[in-house]
């Protein structure tokens, strides 16, 4: 079942001024409950504007966002409830930390939901656990943490609201390879335990290939493709024509297939590639 749906969703910046620009143009997509959806596209393709409409931070110029079949703007006074159900982690979320302690900061969202101090703290501790934040850090000031820890604390602040849909805008930007790998697997295991819907916006095709079930490709304000990750990455030519690329391993395997190797049409990870190549190469050599 679709948890989020958009109907002719459109957003125009600076309407009626000389700077008028359509950022999202009649987008119709449907996001299934419990799926891990990757979102890719160039800067300026409209993906940031799109995700900000999905949780009601931006109000569409025209068209609708349906959450469980209901227009989120039906009652504008209730828009905060939508934001609790559709959680949003912005790029560089560590820049939003403000409280005296990490724990208090993570509690900010749950408290805004109207939870009691105890309940909020319970949610916060659980969220901290999901993001792999060590319990002894919770009583520290957020400004004493390292860059990677700050990032986790900020993500925990959104997870603590226990959203049904979690949108992450480039959560690994600026992290080193190790920090990126650890955070991604933390997000994956959170997704598997909580079984909620995740939208991951990323510029890293390798990260997307490793995590996403389906992929939304945004290109010049339109939804260019929405399909399983495998099928999208199988169309490397089409992606390249809009200036996007496929993971390096997918590229290698696609080219090997072209040269007659008996490998799948679309391979997403090094592990998958090895599973196909090792038996084949061993057979060839013998």
């Amino acid at each position: 079942m679709a948890i989020l749906e958009t109907k002719d969703l459109t957003y125009v910046y600076g309407q009626g001024t000389p700077f008028e620009r359509t950022a999202v143009d009649h987008v119709n997509i449907s996001i299934e409950e419990g799926e891990f959806l990757g979102v890719i596209g160039h800067t300026g393709s409209g993906k940031s504007t799109l995700i900000q409409m999905l949780n009601g931070l931006l109000r569409p110029t025209s068209g609708q966002v349906l959450l469980d079949g209901e227009d989120i703007w039906k009652d504008p006074k209730q828009i905060r409830r939508v934001r609790f159900r559709v959680g949003m982690v912005f790029q560089y979320p560590e820049y939003q930390l403000f409280e005296e302690t990490v724990l208090k900061d993570i509690c900010f969202g749950p408290k805004n939901m109207g939870l009691s101090d105890e309940q909020a703290e319970e949610c916060a501790r659980q969220a901290a656990h999901f993001t792999g934040l060590k319990p002894e850090l919770l009583e520290k000031s957020p400004f004493e943490l390292s860059g990677g820890e700050k990032r986790r604390a900020a993500i925990a602040g959104v997870i603590a609201m226990d959203p049904d849909v979690l949108i992450l805008d480039e959560p690994t930007a600026g992290l080193d390879p190790n920090g990126r790998d650890v955070l991604l697997s933390q997000i994956l295991s959170y997704h598997q335990q909580r079984k909620n819907t995740i939208l991951l916006v990323s510029h890293s095709m390798e990260d997307i290939g490793r995590t996403a079930d389906r992929l939304l490709v945004m290109n010049s304000s339109h939804a260019e493709m929405l399909d399983t990750t495998r099928r999208v990455f199988a169309q490397s030519d089409r992606l390249e024509s809009i200036g996007l690329r496929v993971p390096q391993i997918t590229r290698i395997m696609t080219e090997l297939r072209r040269r007659g190797f008996p490998v799948d049409e679309s391979t997403l990870t090094v592990e998958e590639a090895l599973r196909q190549l090792i038996p084949y190469l061993k057979g060839e050599i013998q």
């Binding site: 080193d176 390879p177 190790n178 390798e206 993971p247 390096q248 391993i249 290698i252 090094v270 590639a273 090895l274 190549l277 090792i278 190469l281 061993k282 050599i285």
Partner: peptide, 20 residues
């Protein structure tokens, strides 16, 4: 040392590990 290699390098490295 918590670093990464390009996927192509990783693939070759692991193929070597498998005796190819």
């Amino acid at each position: 040392h918590k670093l990464d290699v390009p996927q192509a390098t990783e693939l070759m490295y692991r193929l070597r590990g498998a005796g190819i």
